[in-house]
Design a protein around this nucleic acid. Structure first.
Lengths: 196, 196
DNA sequence: ATACCATGTGAATACATATTCACATGAGGC
DNA sequence: GCCTCATGTGAATATGTATTCACATGGTAT
């Protein structure tokens, strides 16, 4: 039998195992059996710590929300120049995706958004806040003269996020067939040409 | 009992029904039962015309490949100016998404790409060709002076596609909570500011 | 030391889903 | 008209998945 640990520790282990399953096999493959195997515990034990799949999804959403989108907000609130902030957010986002491919899959999974999940709205709200955060940085960049005038801040933010998202998508559906960081770096260089 | 029709007709009906299911409920919900209900026929009848789910997926991929990506190639091969071609491809792509929300879901579904689907590679290849097609148009635009020099054609193409893809994603996961065409139009206007 | 209770588990349960089968039906060639 | 075969279907089958249950175990407060 497995060594006993507190439910707090087990919850963390289960969430990480779930993220790993999504990263390797997609949201569809996120079954209780798969989580149990990845976490190295019995299926029944999952239910000791979570009331069901819905609650695991909810915990995943919380983890992602605080780790990914919280980080961007922190960077945006700093004192560096807008373009430097954007680059830092961009690289941070790419790094997180490279480390946890399950994150973009989860956030944009239609299983989550089209199912009866109660937290889909919360997740959509967080994405909305993320867009606003970046919009603010871009607007500041225009005011300070780092970015060219005439740009629409919100649309430029959406373009940047689309660039990141599309890269993540191409990378994950190709089963990491290319190196994501050099690819992202090229896109960032081109983004600089676009916005200046 | 249902009126009898040729297997050719039924195949088409089944594919359309499947696309509708994906559009409304996501790839996860694409069960034989759901297709049967959407197509108004029995589950067993689906098997009269397709050997199984895998073959339905394959037929979906063919339909999407010839309708969506073929159209872009046709436009790209035309004689208009590059920027005009890009706008036409962009609008055509948005229109197709608006009419068939199931298409982007299917193409970028991890169910497809992470499952054991034999045609995932074919699909990835088609996406690659699509990127190349747009890259070519952008390169021509730079040469002809419509787009600013210094742009990297491939990265700019990826940025444009990311913009489209991200719009489709936001639109579908929000259950069509905003009008996609006006949103796309704003993004296109901003894209013009970016590339000129 | 002991009793309690949180933690851990194999087995049972209920339901969903893909696929097959035996049989029905009717359109078209003769 | 009638025979045949493609088309159509309800029921059965097999497998997958979420969840519950009865029981085991061991850490810890007393």
């Amino acid at each position: 039998m497995l060594e006993k640990k507190s439910t707090l520790v087990r919850k963390e282990e289960i969430i990480q195992a779930a993220l790993e399953v999504i990263g390797k096999k997609g949201v569809r493959a996120l079954t209780i059996a798969a989580i149990a195997e990845s976490a190295g515990m019995s299926e029944a034990n999952i239910y000791r710590h979570f009331s069901g799949k819905e609650q695991i999804f909810s915990a995943l959403a919380d983890f992602i929300g605080s780790s990914v989108m919280g980080k961007a907000a922190t960077i945006a609130a700093g004192s560096r120049k807008p373009l430097e902030k954007l680059e830092t957010i961009f690289n941070s986002h790419i790094s997180i995706i490279a480390d946890h491919p399950g994150i973009p899959r989860f956030v944009f999974s239609d299983d989550i958004h089209l199912g009866q999940s109660s937290f889909a709205e919360t997740l959509a709200l967080r994405v909305g806040n993320y867009v606003e955060t970046i919009t603010g940085v871009i607007a500041a960049g225009i005011v300070e003269g780092e970015l060219k005038p005439g740009l629409y801040p919100r649309e430029t933010a959406l373009t940047l996020l689309g660039m990141i998202q599309f890269t993540a998508l191409r990378w994950t559906i190709s089963n990491a067939s290319f190196e994501i960081r050099p690819e992202a770096e090229k896109l960032w260089q081109n983004f600089l040409v676009l916005v200046r």
